Amino acid sequence: MPIDRYYALGRSGLRVSPLALGTMTFGTNGLYGSWGSTEEVSRAIFDRYLAAGGNFFDTADFYTQGTSEAMLGKFVAEAGVRDRVVLTTKFSNNVEFGNPNAGGNGRKSMMRAVEASLRRLRTDYIDLYLLHTWDRITPAEEVMRTFDDLVRAGKIRYAGLSDVPGWYAGRAQTYAEAHALTPLINLQLQYSLIERNIEPEFVPLAQTLGLGITAWSPLGMGLLSGKYRPGEGGGTGEGRLTQKASGPTVGLFTEHNWRVVAALEEVAQEVGRSMAQVALNWAATQPGLASVIIGASKVSQLDDNLASLDFELPTKLRQRLNEVSARTPPFPYPMFTDAYQSRILNAGSSVGDKPAGYAPPVWMEKPSIGG
């Protein structure tokens, strides 16, 4: 699965690379400034990804206080590749202290945010525009109406959601379908060997409603890269996980995760690949996944990530990773196992699915949902 073999994102005609380049590290004035990249390094990373055949770039207005968007827009303009690349950016986080409408998911905030992003990205349209995080307030109907207006105005081409509850995504997509509005084509969610909670709810939701999933943090905030080891206080290693952290980086040094890391290291040794490459390969080839977002603060790190698609994990080794990283599904999913469902369907009679040949074939190498 080379990076320049493109797949349709969700139920759309937008073709994207199986590895997207995340640009949260473009700039040194963000949440993790000491791990950010200067403009020179960021440009080298951009050039390397583009030369490899990648076309899918991910940023947000909040990344490095707008520097990420500004750098990415400059690089695209100077390279003259606007029509070739797919630019994704996001809105939600407040960018102006004391102004409640400078953040959130409401129409006023979204309209302000999209204009600011267009200026920084030096473009007159955004390929994929995402709600960054659910604000717990704005109705899905308001979000979908505004997305539709932005598409009709030519400001954006496609829309999606990031980090929202499953019911909210379902409500939004169903509302759009019922009112002939622009449908969503993307869900951006955290997913990795140590974070598989999206599997019971979001993956079937995406497959049913035509949403391609893009995975952020496929290396588990760096834990799956191999640079951390168990130690006093949870773990040791050079990186943000051993510094004072907050949000999704809290609580990663657990016994379960260390078992995953140990198994990943053994599998990586068996296939002669780096731990990061194996972790990315596993995520990129999981059901429902359209693209995996990789990030890098130096070119050598990007090169290692790009090589994650150059091999196929043997079935037994994949199963080993599946088993060690598995989590007990939350209620009510244990009730949907074959054993439990047999009480509902069989009841002394023969009930089952129709033969595989009943449904007409889909003449595609890979479903449009990317999984």
Rank of each mutant, 00 (worst) to 15 (best):
G226Y: 07
Q173Y: 08
N94S: 15
R43V: 02
I3F: 08
G272E: 06
L313C: 12
S225Q: 03
Q286A: 15
N281P: 07
T138R: 01
G220L: 02
T64R: 08
P360F: 13
G66N: 04
A20E: 06
K108N: 09
L306A: 12
I156M: 06
G103C: 09
G348I: 14
L31N: 14
R145K: 07
W282I: 03
V362C: 04
T214S: 15
L14S: 10
S368F: 10
A8L: 13
R48Q: 10
N105P: 06
K298Q: 03
A290P: 03
G106P: 08
A169K: 02
T59Y: 01
Y228D: 06
Y32M: 10
V203Y: 08
S17G: 13
S308L: 04
P355F: 10
S42M: 04
I185H: 10
A262D: 13
G103Q: 02
D304G: 06
G160V: 13
G54F: 11
P329N: 10
G235E: 03
R327K: 14
L223R: 06
L223H: 02
R171Y: 10
A359P: 08
L181P: 13
S350K: 11
P183Q: 14
T208Q: 12
A326Q: 15
F147D: 02
G288I: 09
P361F: 07
T59N: 04
G251V: 08
W282T: 01
Q286L: 05
G272M: 07
G80C: 04
K90I: 05
V271D: 00
G212C: 03
G30R: 07
M111A: 14
Y63H: 06
D135G: 01
